[in-house]
Amino acid sequence: MKIRIKFAKYGSLRFVGHLDMMRYFQKAMRRADIDIAYSEGYSPHQIMSFAAPLGVGITSEGEYLDIEVHSSKSDQEALRALNEVMVEGVSVLQYRELPQGARNAMSSVAAADYLVYWKEGDFGCPDALPELSRALREFYRGQKEILITRQTKKGEKTMDLKPLIFELEAVDVKDFRTARKLDGFPEEGLQLPCQGVGFFMKVCTGSTDNVKPELVLSAFSDYCEATGDCGFRFEPFRMQIHRVEVYARESGDFIPLGEIGCHIN
């Protein structure tokens, strides 16, 4: 049977890269006695696939991986067994059986939600940005297209970001958190910023058109600089990017990957 696992990654674990997280989970499966299936051959490997790689430095409360198992404990028991062998900085939030024929996590990813906020640190807090919300609306809704140039192997390439951004708004991060309490995600997983201000965005994600939040923010930063509108400048080291959720798209709607699948008793 196929299992989908949802987990959060935060704290110092944000410096552990994607490939190392895969290795981490392979070892965790064995520590937790999950009856995972192996491929054939001289060096068998676990049947496991991750939804969407998370960049180094980014935290998340919406990471997914699919595994194949021969048998399974109940979802609650499996959740407990996995969390008992986790390190500080990884929490397993969900463990569900996938229906027969469900597409795997990686191939079904269509979008992801991100929260981006100013982090505490040696930098101090940003000046109040009352204009941020309005400027962001004009940047996103007011423009017909958001053209950016990207450096590719074949030289510069111009592309329009707008159709790949599904939502973009300024939010109060504390309010956002209150409205969206997540079971099993520790309070300290988000280092709440000095002021409540931040960005929320839903962007196209996956193997074909993958939009990184940094790309949207630097396009907005360029816009602000060009128009003289609002004082926003994107300084990557001062901002924390936090992935909130990853979605599949089914008949036009975005469905969180965790909603596909059912409980195991």
Binding site: S12, L13, F15, V16, V56, V87
Partner: peptide, 9 residues
């Protein structure tokens, strides 16, 4: 960077 963060299993 994971060389310097500790916190291993």
């Amino acid at each position: 960077p994971a060389r310097y963060i500790g916190n291993e299993v």
